[in-house]
């Protein structure tokens, strides 16, 4: 298991999953790929298929309809897989805490490794979170 994790940390490929967000965290995640931030220089790449992913970037407040799909997708990710919760919604549902359509926070549904707070978190914060994730997992090996 630890060898697999070690191999994964060299160039973590990320898959982005929105579970009912306002789009801001998703746009800021995409922003990390564009010239000013350019997260690809750390070997991170946004992939189109969940089967290629090492890290799941989850944003949004876990709405009833998308949670079903998210569980299905989480079963399909090759394990070991790391989960990053981007934004206040994914962390604690934020302003949507009392909504009828967002009954459960993300970390009660799937295990989360890193939380990046902010509404939306700045691309710098997302990159810092990614670096912390690599450090955290690297230190346990």
């Amino acid at each position: 298991m630890s060898l697999k994790l070690k191999a994964l940390l060299k160039s973590p490929w990320v898959f982005h999953l929105s579970t009912g967000s306002c789009n801001n965290c998703d746009i800021e995640t995409l922003d990390c790929l564009t010239p000013r931030f350019d997260i690809e220089r750390f070997g991170m790449l946004l992939v189109g298929s969940i089967k290629h992913a090492d890290v799941l970037l989850v944003s949004g407040s876990c709405n009833r309809m998308s949670v079903e799909r998210m569980k299905e997708l989480f079963e399909q990710v090759p394990k070991p897989c790391l989960v990053v919760a981007i934004g206040t919604c994914a962390g604690s549902r934020g302003i949507f805490k009392d909504s009828y359509n967002c009954p459960v926070p993300l970390d009660k549904i799937i295990p989360v490794d890193v939380y990046i707070p902010g509404c939306p978190p700045k691309p710098e914060a997302i990159i810092a979170g990614a670096v912390k994730l690599i450090e955290k997992v690297g230190s346990t090996l």
Binding site: S61, N63, S66, D98, S99, Y100, N101, C102
Partner: peptide, 10 residues
Amino acid sequence: GYNHRGIEKL
């Protein structure tokens, strides 16, 4: 419906 958060009610 994958994004519905019940804004009007909130």
